[in-house]
């Protein structure tokens, strides 16, 4: 129903038939691409203690998008440029910034303020604001899908190449550096990859709901399994189910997809670890005896 309101011929537009409309196909492809990348990115975001940084980078992307529109460029390119700069800035601040939530929060607020300024100087579209803040997966164009596919392919290829080194540098930075890994370079490469995926994820769930796609699925998966490759795969599946679920539910209900996507991700986060505990009570007692016997 939410989607039906966007289609001019409302009589013909109902239920699953909508899945064949061009904007729905774009939405499904874009959502799938982002879900595939968000599993791996989300895992390293958690390992590297960067959840707040993802939030900050998304907010820094916001003025980039409104400035781009003000200058007559596509909002997506503004997002990509500003997020990447934001990610690199966080990398440049290094360990000092990670614990300084006040610094990050202040920059985040300032960026959001700038975003509103640029928007008011331009067309002052509330539509643009809503789409940026809360996402609008149904507004994704075919051109954007192509850009997303290229970005996701590059990011996944890079992560496939550096994954093991990045894992070592993330969980064990001191030993990784001692063993000769360039932890700073790995960090910079990851932050750029993360920023690119944040930029394109903003189009789906928006600046304010970025957590639901980039952090929550990985946080759910990491509680279910400890194997790095499994966490990544599971997180991607959870993100994928959230996005597809959001789109399908939106064909029947008068709810925006962003709401359904975030809700599914949150429900998984709450319920899946509980279900896993019910099914296999192995983990907890074993830990207790191991610790006691040491």
């Amino acid at each position: 129903m939410f989607i039906a309101t966007l289609v001019s011929d409302q009589e013909a537009a109902s239920g699953l038939e909508l899945l064949n409309t061009p904007f729905m196909i774009n939405a499904l492809i874009a959502g799938t691409l982002i879900a595939l990348a968000s599993g791996a990115i989300g895992y390293f975001v958690l390992l590297r203690d960067l959840p707040f940084a993802t939030h900050a980078v998304a907010h820094i992307g916001f003025p980039g998008a409104t400035l781009a529109v003000l200058l007559g460029v596509s909002a997506v390119f503004g997002l990509i440029a500003a997020c990447t700069i934001g990610g690199l800035a966080i990398g440049a601040m290094g360990h000092r910034a990670r614990n300084r939530e006040v610094v990050t929060g202040t920059v985040l607020a300032f960026a959001t303020g700038l975003g509103i300024l640029f928007n008011s100087l331009g067309s002052a579209q509330t539509n643009l604001l809503t789409n940026l803040l809360f996402g609008n997966i149904l507004a994704i164009t075919t051109d954007q899908v192509v850009v997303f596919a290229v970005i996701v392919a590059i990011v996944l290829a890079v992560l496939a190449l550096i994954g093991r080194k990045l894992l070592f540098a993330s969980v064990d930075p001191d030993v990784a550096a001692a063993r000769g890994l360039n932890t700073r370079a790995l960090s910079a490469v990851f932050l750029v990859a993360m920023s690119l995926i944040i930029a394109i994820s903003v189009t789906v769930v928006g600046v304010l709901l970025i957590f639901a796609l980039l952090v929550t699925p990985a946080a759910t998966a990491i509680r279910l399994t400890a194997k790095p490759t499994l966490v990544v795969a599971l997180a991607s599946v959870i993100a994928l189910v959230s996005v597809w679920g959001g789109l399908i539910v939106a064909t029947y209900q008068p709810w925006p997809p962003s709401f359904v996507i975030t809700t599914i991700a949150c429900v998984f986060w709450v319920l899946l670890p509980q279900l896993a505990r019910l099914r296999g009570p192995v983990a907890a007692p074993q830990i207790a005896t191991q610790t006691a016997s040491s």
Binding site: G163, K165, F168, G180, L181, K227
Partner: peptide, 16 residues
């Protein structure tokens, strides 16, 4: 896996 990274963590690729 933490022990494995001591050996494999400096190599390109993914998985342990």
């Amino acid at each position: 896996d933490l022990v494995a990274l001591g050996l494999a963590g400096t190599r390109w690729g993914v998985g342990l």
